[in-house]
Write a protein that binds this DNA or RNA. Structure first.
Lengths: 135, 135
DNA sequence: GCATAATATACCATTATGGTAGATTTAATG
DNA sequence: CATTAAATCTACCATAATGGTATATTATGC
């Protein structure tokens, strides 16, 4: 139940981009600033673009900008995009994933957990992270 | 950020044991009931014993019983024992795990998440799961 | 001493993670 | 139009974690 580096690097990158609002930032610049390999970051940024959280601009002077205002992007979207899904256990979203889900007593644990995780992340916007008080 | 089968099988096993209160249940019986390979379950039960959630009885007629009353065992303990720890990101418990943790804006996300996960699991006791209403 | 059951140790296949490499496309700019 | 900077695409790879098996050993009741 560890969070991947993808999520950690990706969220950091999103915050960095949000803090440089109007500028188009190349993956090169972001990678240098965040101290991550550019090649690896490339793939992370692509995921974020595919999830419509970033817009990309090709060619010289190109790079990435937020697809929407930071205030409208919530952390749950970002992590879901990077992890593939926020879902911790299949059967919560898809009861047919386990033939026992009908009378499964553990399922309610996973359901409650899913709600708690989602709510916790949803409560924080990218704007909060980029421009809120530090520490 | 997927939950391992260890946690899923392990929690199911704990519930089964709790529902058969006074009886000493062999891993054989539990495995059959829960439809999991005995060998794999053995290792899961060992983890739960090492975490002092189960007591084991060796030899013929032996098996496992709860180490404490079900009402005193909370789900967060069980999952922590099975996952190794509930911690999603190192730096939350151990700031020195990341040299950026001093002024890291993502850290507060992970901290809040950790609190939410723990609280959500702690709110449910094994007794609730074993004898609460179904579905 | 035999059957049963936990325990210990070692092993293994598959998948996910965390990356790297190289070629290709796109667009700005001189 | 050639150059260059940038995203994008595809393929690859090493390592670790997951999920599980096999085998031998130890303890206990009968």
């Amino acid at each position: 139940m560890k969070l991947s580096t993808r999520s950690r690097y990706g969220l950091r990158a999103m915050i960095f981009i949000a803090r440089n609002r109007e500028q188009v930032l190349s993956s090169d610049v972001i990678a240098e600033n965040e101290d991550v390999s550019k090649k690896y970051l490339d793939r992370i940024l692509m995921r974020l673009r595919e999830a419509n959280l970033l817009r990309s601009v090709k060619g010289q002077g190109g790079g990435y900008v937020l697809a929407r205002p930071a205030g409208e992007i919530r952390t749950d979207e970002i992590i879901a995009a990077l992890e593939g899904s926020l879902c911790l256990v299949e059967c919560v979203d898809d009861p047919s994933a386990c033939e026992k889900s009908g009378d499964c007593r553990t399922r309610r644990v996973w359901s409650r957990l899913a709600v708690a995780v989602k709510a916790s992340l949803r409560a924080i916007s990218l704007e909060d992270l980029a421009h809120g008080e530090d520490a």
